[in-house]
Simulated scan of single mutants.
Amino acid sequence: MMRFLIGAVALMLLAGCVSPGDLQKNEPSLKASTSKDPKKYALCVFPRWQDARSDAAVSETENGYRLLVANSNMADELLDIRRSPKGSTVTLYQRMAWSPGYGRSEMKQAINDCL
Rank of each mutant, 00 (worst) to 15 (best):
M1V: 10
M2R: 13
M2F: 12
R3D: 14
F4T: 12
F4G: 14
L5T: 10
I6Q: 08
G7P: 11
V9Y: 13
L11S: 09
L13Y: 06
A15L: 13
G16Y: 06
G16K: 07
G16F: 06
P20I: 00
G21N: 14
G21S: 12
D22C: 03
L23S: 00
Q24D: 05
Q24C: 06
K25P: 00
E27R: 13
E27T: 08
S29M: 06
S29V: 05
L30G: 00
K31M: 11
K31W: 10
K31P: 02
K31A: 12
A32D: 08
S33E: 15
S35I: 10
K36L: 14
K36N: 12
D37C: 06
P38E: 01
P38F: 02
K39D: 12
K39H: 07
K39Y: 06
K40F: 13
K40A: 15
C44N: 04
V45M: 04
P47H: 05
R48D: 10
R48K: 14
W49I: 03
Q50D: 02
Q50T: 04
A52G: 03
A52L: 00
S54M: 08
S54I: 02
D55H: 06
D55K: 05
D55G: 05
V58G: 04
V58Y: 07
E60T: 06
T61M: 12
T61A: 00
T61F: 09
E62G: 13
E62I: 07
N63I: 02
N63H: 15
G64R: 01
G64H: 01
Y65K: 05
R66L: 15
L67K: 00
L68A: 03
L68N: 00
V69N: 03
V69D: 08
V69E: 05
V69Q: 04
A70I: 00
A70F: 03
A70R: 04
N71A: 10
M74S: 15
M74F: 11
A75N: 04
A75G: 05
D76V: 09
E77N: 12
E77G: 09
L78Y: 07
L78F: 05
L79W: 01
L79P: 00
D80N: 10
R82F: 06
R82Q: 15
R83H: 14
S84N: 10
S84Q: 15
K86V: 07
G87Y: 04
S88F: 02
V90I: 11
T91P: 15
L92C: 05
L92Y: 02
L92Q: 01
L92G: 04
Y93K: 01
Y93H: 03
Q94Y: 06
R95V: 01
A97V: 07
W98Y: 13
S99Q: 15
P100F: 02
G101H: 08
Y102V: 10
G103P: 11
G103M: 01
G103Q: 02
G103C: 01
S105R: 14
E106A: 13
E106D: 12
E106H: 08
E106I: 03
K108W: 13
Q109D: 15
A110P: 00
A110H: 03
A110F: 00
I111C: 02
N112C: 09
N112T: 13
D113M: 04
L115W: 11
L115K: 15
L115S: 14
